[in-house]
Design a protein around this nucleic acid. Structure first.
Lengths: 230, 230
DNA sequence: TCTTGTATAATTGTATACAATAGCTCCTGT
DNA sequence: ACAGGAGCTATTGTATACAATTATACAAGA
């Protein structure tokens, strides 16, 4: 399981356009296409064995997803993420994740709560071992469960949309075993607050969790952001 | 000036695709195309004098904007907004508008602040006269100034994206002269808090402003929402 | 009457041909 | 030397032809 298959599939997976879209998103998020790299319609089409038409339609969608920028009559370029963007993303997420945790407290099902508990339990093992890849998976899943549990398609989709940024930000930063352990403890507290049916506390902790994640990045100077502001 | 020209122009305005996109968005927001109505590629193309290609590309973008839903091999349908959606939208907006007002307090320019003051002053006149159309324009502009002033492209774009929902929600609800007057007073308070460089108060008031707007809708039972939840 | 199969039409999905635009090379004139 | 432009090339923008899929109508059979 890849680390970014949680993103909602907005497009028809089985059409050529859908396949191009998903493939390009994957390639951009995985870093195959670097920031500011130009994507050419024919080249992409030939690589995937399709004509320009589905490629162009996929481009239009990727543009609205924020992954590429299309300059009329010139070309499509992979967008960059600035340090300011990262800051704003975490600021917005801290608020929305808090809201999500609050709503989840009131709407979570028993099954979801159990999966959350299992997730935290399993993550504590991998955190202590320093298994970063598994931690990433479990972190994604933890938040994804909350998105589903908040009972708001609007909020769920919005937070899902931020996921592509999270993936790209992770590529630019280092995550340490220490942060993994701390993060796991924060997840545990959020889960306990939800289990205790304390929405205010769940919201507070989820917001704090995002702020801590951001502060940790800044404190350790782990940025590797080269693109300048426009 | 139409009431929904504040939306960011993500697409090339002067390409056929851009023209189709903007025209279709306008027509959906204005209510020309009703909820759940099917949009046919050839019909749209003939109406605008273009081939199916730019129409299809515009469709793909409108899908990601949330204005239409594309069912593979079937067609494109105008999306509906449920009462639950409206609730969620205002909940999310109340948080984000608060954040925006807080940031705007710290980043607003003198020119923007002056336009804000002028906006509030002019709106108080139209509010007292019950000029609803002008009120709508000035309300859009008031919030748009704050979006620009918050100095966060991420947040600005996000709040702009919500604008299309606001327009469609307004179509479904009635706004009264009384609410116009109250709203104008709330705008004035937000503006004063920003002018006084009090970010906490600006955030609190902006959040309250959204909650009041929603409560007012609910209290007056002004919903005209017919689409059922899926 | 209801179901089901089939032919037909309507519509979307994709490939390709052609048009328009941007960028580059290289030539020319001063 | 160098500014500027003609012309070529590469690339995107659009239209159209064809393929695949879905909806519809209608008839046959239970």
């Amino acid at each position: 399981m890849s680390s970014y298959d949680l993103k909602k599939e907005v497009t028809d997976k089985y059409s050529l356009r859908g396949r191009v879209f998903n493939r390009l998103r994957e390639d951009i998020l995985s870093g195959k296409y670097k920031e500011n790299e130009e994507l050419k319609e024919v080249a992409i089409g030939e690589e995937l064995g399709v004509s320009r038409t589905p490629v162009r339609e996929a481009f239009r969608q990727l543009e609205l997803e924020g992954l590429i920028q299309i300059v009329p009559n010139k070309g499509a370029y992979v967008t960059g993420i600035t340090a300011k963007d990262v800051k704003d993303i975490y600021m917005i997420r801290s608020s929305l994740e808090g809201m999500c945790a609050r709503l989840a407290t009131e709407n979570i099902t028993l099954e979801q709560l159990e999966e959350l508990e299992e997730n935290v339990y399993l993550a504590s093992f991998h955190a202590s071992k320093g298994h970063m890849e598994q931690m990433t998976e479990l972190d994604n899943r933890f938040h994804h469960i909350l998105y589903e549990a908040c009972n708001s398609k609007m909020l769920e989709n919005l937070l899902q949309d931020f996921h592509q940024y999270v993936i790209r930000i992770r590529k630019k930063t280092l995550s340490t075993k220490e942060r993994g352990i701390a993060s796991n403890e924060e997840h545990r507290q959020i889960m306990e607050a939800i289990k205790a049916k304390n929405p205010q506390e769940a919201e507070r902790l989820a917001t704090l969790h995002m702020n801590n994640a951001y502060d940790n990045m800044v404190k350790n100077g782990l940025y590797d952001i080269y693109k300048k502001e426009d």
